[in-house]
Deep mutational scan, measured.
Amino acid sequence: LELTLRVGDKTWHFKDVDEEFVRHLEELLKRGAHEREIEEIIREWLR
C-alpha cells in the first residue's frame, strides 16, 4: 500500500505501508486525534 497523509501543514508519503498501521491511523482519525498524537505515531512507525 502507498499512503499520503496530510496533517496540519505537514505531508507524508509512505510506500509499502503495513495495513495494520493504516487501520491504526484510521482509528486515531475517527476519534479525533490531535495533530501531535498523529505525528508521534508516525515517528514511532518510522523507527
Rank of each mutant, 00 (worst) to 15 (best):
E39H: 06
I42A: 02
E44D: 12
A33L: 09
R23N: 12
L25Q: 00
L28W: 05
E26L: 11
E19Q: 14
L28Q: 09
L28M: 12
L25T: 02
E35H: 12
H34V: 08
L28C: 03
F14P: 00
L46N: 06
T4Q: 07
I38N: 01
I41K: 11
G8A: 04
V22C: 02
L3R: 02
L1W: 13
E35A: 09
H24V: 10
E35R: 05
H13K: 08
L28I: 07
I38F: 09
E20W: 14
R43W: 13
R43C: 03
R31T: 13
G32N: 06
L29H: 05
R43V: 14
W12E: 00
E35P: 13
R36G: 13
W12F: 10
I42K: 00
L5G: 00
W12V: 02
I42E: 01
E44R: 06
R6V: 15
K30N: 10
E26P: 00
T11F: 08
R47P: 10
L5V: 15
R31I: 10
W45F: 12
E37C: 09
E35D: 11
R36V: 12
R43D: 11
V22F: 06
L25E: 00
R6W: 06
L46F: 10
L28E: 07
R47V: 14
L1N: 14
E26M: 11
D18T: 12
L3W: 04
L3D: 01
H34A: 13
T4R: 05
R6C: 02
I38W: 03
I38D: 01
R47T: 14
G8D: 02
I41G: 04
H24Y: 12
E39K: 04
W12H: 02
E40K: 11
E19V: 15
E2P: 02
I38Y: 04
D18I: 02
H34F: 04
E39M: 08
E26F: 08
A33H: 10
L29A: 10
T4H: 09
E39L: 08
K30Q: 11
G8L: 03
E39Q: 07
E27M: 10
E35F: 11
G32P: 05
L46Q: 09
E35V: 12
I38G: 00
R31H: 11
E40P: 03
R23M: 10
L28K: 11
F14I: 07
R43K: 13
R47K: 14
K30A: 12
D16L: 15
V17R: 09
R36W: 13
I42F: 08
L3K: 03
L25W: 02
V17E: 15
E44N: 08
I42L: 06
E26Y: 11
E37R: 05
L5T: 01
D9Y: 02
V7N: 02
E35K: 06
A33Q: 09
E2W: 07
L29M: 15
L29D: 03
E44C: 07
E27S: 10
R43E: 14
D18H: 11
R43M: 14
R6F: 04
V22R: 04
V17Y: 06
F21Q: 05
E27R: 09
E37H: 08
L28N: 04
G32E: 06
I41N: 08
A33R: 07
A33Y: 14
R6E: 14
E39Y: 06
A33T: 14
F21D: 04
F21R: 03
K10G: 03
G32Q: 05
W45Q: 05
F21P: 01
H13P: 01
K15D: 07
W45V: 04
T4C: 06
E35M: 08
L46I: 13
R6H: 15
L46M: 11
A33W: 12
L46G: 03
R47M: 12
E27T: 11
E40V: 09
E40T: 09
R23Y: 08
E20R: 11
R36H: 15
E2S: 11
I42M: 03
D16V: 13
A33G: 08
R47C: 05
W12M: 03
I42Q: 01
L28V: 08
I42S: 01
L46W: 06
D18C: 03
E40S: 12
E40C: 05
T11V: 15
F14C: 01
E20T: 12
E35W: 11
D9S: 07
L5I: 15
E44L: 07
K10D: 04
F14H: 00
K10R: 09
D16C: 02
E37M: 06
E26V: 10
T11I: 14
H24F: 09
W45P: 01
R36N: 14
L25S: 01
H24P: 01
E19C: 03
L3Q: 02
K15M: 09
G8Q: 02
V22P: 01
G8E: 02
V22G: 02
L28R: 09
G32D: 05
L25M: 09
E44A: 08
E40M: 10
R23F: 08
T4L: 09
T4F: 08
G32A: 05
T11S: 04
D9N: 10
W12N: 00
T4S: 10
